[in-house]
C-alpha cells in the first residue's frame, strides 16, 4: 500500500521542489532572450523546448503536488471494501470456579 505523506513531509518536499522550480524559472528568465532564440532555430533544436517542458513539469509539478498536500487539499480515498471480520474463537481455557 502506498505510503501516505503527512503534511509536514509534504511541506519539506514542497520547499525543496519549490527552490528547484524557482532555480529553473530563474535560469530561463535570466537568459530569456538567448534561450528563446536558440530554442526557436528549428530542426534538431526542437529537442530543447521539449526537454525543458519535461524538466519543468517534473520539478514544478512535484512542487505543486506537495503544495496541495501541505495545504490539506487531498484526494478522497475510495471507500474501502469491507471484508468480513475474521473473528477468532476465544480459546477455551480451563477455569476453576472455586
Amino acid at each position: 500500500m502506498a505510503h501516505e505523506m503527512t503534511k509536514k513531509q509534504a511541506m519539506v518536499r514542497m520547499i525543496g521542489f519549490g527552490a528547484a522550480s524557482a532555480a529553473v524559472f530563474g535560469a530561463i528568465f535570466h537568459f530569456a532572450n538567448p534561450i528563446t532564440e536558440i530554442f526557436s532555430r528549428g530542426g534538431f533544436y526542437a529537442a530543447l523546448p521539449i526537454a525543458t517542458v519535461f524538466l519543468v513539469s517534473y520539478v514544478h509539478g512535484s512542487f505543486a503536488s506537495n503544495m496541495w498536500t501541505a495545504l490539506g487539499i487531498n484526494a478522497k480515498q475510495p471507500a474501502k471494501t469491507l471484508k468480513p471480520a475474521v473473528t477468532k474463537r476465544p480459546e477455551v481455557r480451563a477455569t476453576l470456579n472455586a
Binding site: S40, R41, G42
Partner: peptide, 8 residues
C-alpha cells in the same frame, strides 16, 4: 518546434 515556432 521543428519549424521554430515555440516561444519557450
Amino acid at each position: 518546434a521543428m519549424h521554430g515556432m515555440v516561444d519557450i
